[in-house]
Design a protein around this nucleic acid. Structure first.
Lengths: 331, 331
DNA sequence: CGCGTTTACGTCGTTCGTAACGATA
DNA sequence: TATCGTTACGAACGACGTAAACGCG
C-alpha cells in the first residue's frame, strides 16, 4: 500500500470508475493505474472494483470502507505538502473556489485581483454553482473554500465565517407604475407582477418564497436566471420585475431601470465563507480570507480557524462595494 | 513522501531520536532510515531534526507540525490494513493492552485465555502501569485498548465503556484486634493502623486519601506496592493492614489473613475499558470486548463504538470472579 | 471497429544491505 | 573505544511507458 496507489484509487472513483480519464488527471498512463490497483487489491486481499468483462462497474462494499480511510489519509498527506510549501514560501499553487455567480461576478473580482497581485503564480479556479452545489464541492474536496449565502440558518460546514450582510432590491423599468407608488413597496404590490429572479428562488424553501408565504401571498416567478445581467435584461424587455442582490446593482446600470429598496419586505441575507476543518490552508488562501474579513490579518484568521469559531469579526458588516466603498445605496 | 518515510520518521521520534533503535523496530538498517529521512527532508524543503555533529538532538518546529499530520495519516493506513485483515479473516495479529497489575492479574487472565483459544495466532502484549500511564500509552497509540479504574469522574478518553464496579476490602492478620470489633469497621479504626496499599493511594487525589480527608482523618500509608500478593505478604509480616481490590481476594488466600468489607467506608470503583476513536479494531479485539461486556456481542460492540456511547451494557454489573461466578464475597 | 482494460516486455530509477568512514563522549 | 549517523557501492527489486491482446457495444 502506497500513497500513490491510494491516490490512483480515489482518482478512479472520482472519475466515475474510468481508469483512462483518471490516468490523465494524475498524469500517468492507464497501464500504470491498472497495475497499481491490481497490486493494491492483491495486498488488501479483496477486489476494489467489480468488473464486467473489461470495464469497472462498481465499487465493492469493502472498497467503500477503504475509501472512508483513504480520503482523510490523502488529506493529511496534502496538508503536509501544504505545510511544506508554506514554510518554503512557495509562490506557486492552486486555489479552487466554489461559489455562486453573484459572488463571483460582483464580490470576488477585486479581491481576487489583489490576491493575484500578491501571488502572481497562483492559479485560481472559480467553480460556479448553486449554494448546495458549492457546499457539495467543498465536501468532496474539489474546492478549497466555498462562499454561499443564506438567510436565517447558516449553511452546514466545518468552519463558517460570516462575511457580510446584504439585501435584495427590486428592479423595475423606468416609468413603471411601482415607481410612482408614493409609499414604501409592499409584498402585495410585488405579487401582482411576474417576477424575474435567481434560480434559487424557485425552491419552496427559498427566503423569497417563504416571505410571500408568511404574508399569505403567492409570487409569480415568471423567469429565473443565474446572474443579474440576464435578469436586468429581461426586466428591460418587460417580462416582469426583477429581484436581485444589491451587490449587482452597479452592474445592471442604465437610466431605463429603477432600483427600489426591499429590505423591509425580504429578510436580510448573510454571505458565508466555508472551510473544511481537515484542510490546512496555503498562505495565499489565508491572505485572501483576511482580505475578505475587514480588520482581520492572517494570524487572526489562522487562530479563528484553529478555534473553529466565528469570532474573527464579531460584528458582521453590511455589503460595501470595494470599488466604491463610500457609496451606500438602498438604505 | 511515502508511507515508509513517514513511518520511519515517527518511529525515530518515538525512539527518542535514535535512528539505530528505530531501525530495529521497523526491521530495517540504520542506513535505510537515515537515507529515507534525508530524502524526506529534501522533498519537504526543511530539516526535520536538528543535528549536532552526528546525532539527532531535537525536532525542528516544522517537524512537530508534520508530526501532527503524519500520526493520523499512519493511523488511517493502519486502519485500512486492519480492515483488510478483518475481511480476509486473518487470524494473526497483535493485541496491546495497557492496564494495571490488578486487572492483568485478577481480571484479564480468563478472558485472554478464552481469546487465545479463539485466536491462537494473536500475540498478546500486556503493558502494566499506573492508570495515568496506561492512558498515556493509549494516547500515544502504543496500546490498542486501556483498562483503568476510577471512582467518581470517568477517565479521559475517546471511547469509554464501563466494565464493572468493585469495592475495596481490608486485609488484616487473623486474630487482629479489628476482627473482634463486634461492629462494622469505621474509617477512624483504620486511621489507627499503618496501611499497606497500592501505589496510587499515595496520591493526594486518590479516593482513599479523599475518603479520609472527608472524615477529617489522615491515613498512615506505611507501604505501597503494585500488586495484592505483595501487599498480603507485608500484612502477614505485620507491617500494617492492607487495602486491596476485592478482585484480588482469592489470590491472597490462606487462613492467616481475614478479609473485612469496606464498601461503607471507601467509594465504589468502576473499571473502564478505553479506546481510541481513530483506531479501527481487529475482530479479535472486538470479540475480547464483547466477552468483557456481559450480554454484548461483536455487532453491538461495533455499534456502540461507532456511536461512541456507553450504552452497550446500560446496567454496569458488579465484579464477579469468572472462575467462581456464583460466589459473591464481601457483600 | 472504437473504447477501455489487461497483459507482456524492456528500460530505468530507486531501495536495499554491507561496509567503510567520521565524529563524539 | 564504543556508539551513532552519514556516505559509498553493487545487487535486486519495482515502477514506468510502449505496445500488443482481449471483450464489449
Amino acid at each position: 500500500m502506497t500513497l500513490v496507489q491510494l491516490r490512483y484509487f480515489i482518482t478512479i472513483v472520482d472519475s466515475g470508475l474510468n481508469i483512462t480519464v483518471a490516468a490523465k488527471k494524475v498524469h500517468a498512463t492507464q497501464s500504470s493505474l491498472s497495475k497499481q490497483i491490481k497490486q493494491l487489491e492483491d495486498e488488501l486481499g479483496f477486489l476494489l472494483f467489480t468488473r464486467r468483462a473489461r470495464s469497472l462497474t462498481a465499487l465493492t462494499p469493502a472498497a467503500t470502507r477503504v475509501l472512508e480511510h483513504a480520503r482523510p489519509l490523502l488529506a493529511h498527506a496534502g496538508n503536509i505538502r501544504a505545510l511544506s510549501q508554506n514554510l518554503r514560501r512557495e509562490t506557486e499553487g492552486e486555489l479552487h473556489i466554489a461559489t455562486t455567480h453573484t459572488q463571483a461576478r460582483h464580490v470576488l473580482p477585486s479581491m481576487l485581483a489583489r490576491l493575484k497581485r500578491s501571488y502572481p503564480k497562483v492559479a485560481m479556479h472559480l467553480a460556479p454553482g448553486g449554494d448546495g452545489e458549492s457546499l457539495a464541492r467543498l465536501a468532496r474536496g474539489e474546492a478549497d473554500l466555498a462562499i454561499v449565502s443564506s438567510s436565517g440558518v447558516p449553511p452546514q460546514a466545518d468552519i463558517r465565517l460570516p462575511l457580510f450582510h446584504w439585501e435584495r432590491v427590486v428592479l423595475v423599468p423606468a416609468r413603471h407604475r411601482l415607481t410612482r407608488l408614493g409609499r414604501p413597496l409592499q409584498l402585495e404590490d410585488l405579487s401582482h407582477y411576474p417576477l424575474v429572479s435567481y434560480e434559487s428562488s424557485r425552491e419552496r424553501t427559498s427566503s423569497l418564497q417563504r416571505a410571500f408565504d408568511a404574508a399569505g401571498l403567492t409570487p409569480q416567478i415568471a423567469m429565473t436566471a443565474r446572474d443579474a445581467d440576464l435578469i436586468a435584461t429581461y426586466v428591460r424587455n418587460g417580462l416582469g420585475i426583477g429581484v436581485v442582490a444589491e451587490m449587482a446593482v452597479d452592474a445592471v446600470g442604465g437610466d431605463d431601470l429603477v432600483v427600489l429598496p426591499s429590505e423591509h419586505l425580504l429578510p436580510t441575507c448573510t454571505t458565508w465563507l466555508l472551510l473544511r476543518r481537515d484542510r490546512l490552508l496555503r498562505d495565499h488562501t489565508v491572505d485572501l480570507i483576511a482580505q475578505m474579513l475587514p480588520g482581520a490579518d492572517a494570524r487572526s484568521v489562522r487562530r479563528a480557524i484553529e478555534a473553529a469559531s466565528d469570532e474573527v469579526a464579531p460584528v458582521v458588516p453590511h455589503w460595501r462595494d470595494p470599488d466604491n466603498p463610500f457609496v451606500r445605496r438602498n438604505r
